[in-house]
Design a protein around this nucleic acid. Sequence first.
DNA 1: ATATCTGCAAAGACTTTGCATGAGA
DNA 2: TCTCATGCAAAGTCTTTGCAGATAT
Lengths: 157, 157
Amino acid sequence: MPHGNGMGPRWWHRRFRGCGYRMTVPRQAILDVLSKTSRHLSAEDVFMAVHKVYHHVGLTTVYRTLELLVQMGLVSKFDFGDGRARYELLEGSKDSGHHHHLICTKCGRIIDYTDFIDEEIKLLKETEKGLSKKYKFKITNHLIQFYGLCDKCKDKR
Amino acid sequence: MPHGNGMGPRWWHRRFRGCGYRMTVPRQAILDVLSKTSRHLSAEDVFMAVHKVYHHVGLTTVYRTLELLVQMGLVSKFDFGDGRARYELLEGSKDSGHHHHLICTKCGRIIDYTDFIDEEIKLLKETEKGLSKKYKFKITNHLIQFYGLCDKCKDKR
DNA sequence: ATATCTGCAAAGACTTTGCATGAGA
DNA sequence: TCTCATGCAAAGTCTTTGCAGATAT
């Protein structure tokens, strides 16, 4: 499930160079994994996927690269409450890939959804505006998550 | 800043008994701390506060009690991204204490806000309904957080 | 009386750090 | 060539677990 927004080895390479960083084999491999696999990978997930192809790449490098990607704004880091961070590549065009998560508190399944995003964005923008004014707080990001039971777990009890 | 919704030692005691649990000195002390102090305490914060009065109470008990309180629905557990869980006592009456958080990504300050809650609840209810239907997902809870820079940190750079 | 709770110590899970070696531009 | 990046091992941090002794009802 590639992105198809014009991202690719060369784009990433330029992006890295622009930030004063170097494009390396491990970094490229990590980006490949993030862009080709389904979402919500933990550092360990990424490590295992990369490790299949490049045995020499270590978990430490995966952590460092993911952190770097988060700082560069290319990757989002989430906490779904299971004690490990999850990462997903951001889409290219602004807001195009904007979505939130439904998290099953029983089996841990995560569903992306993009429904109601328009209404949501509208409300959020208003809210952000009001809150910025009232608390003199400069809002840069927001997080919305729903918790509950997924289709399968709901029926089990 | 006590709650004043009729909660108190006896109410908690009954609540515990109702769930088959016992009210003990450490549990009472932890509830006291949660109900009297300002919010967003980490397990360590609670431990230190309790420890001032009851030297014998251990950190393990604090973790276990907080987990218990979360399961009983008396306490909410949050993750503000700094690697440790935060806990806060829920208000008594339904939705009365409902609020969300502004989190300063620089200094870690957390601001509670209750503004726009009405609009928010309206949209969330709609969204929950739609999502429940579409994904057959039974939603039990939601999380909304805003990240950014607080008044003081915003000006520093 | 007895099932629940507690404290301590130890283990567990995830993540970060130090440092010598290796590699991109 | 000269930084920047990597891998390994070790340490760090928060949280959980095992178990004998203590406690609430």
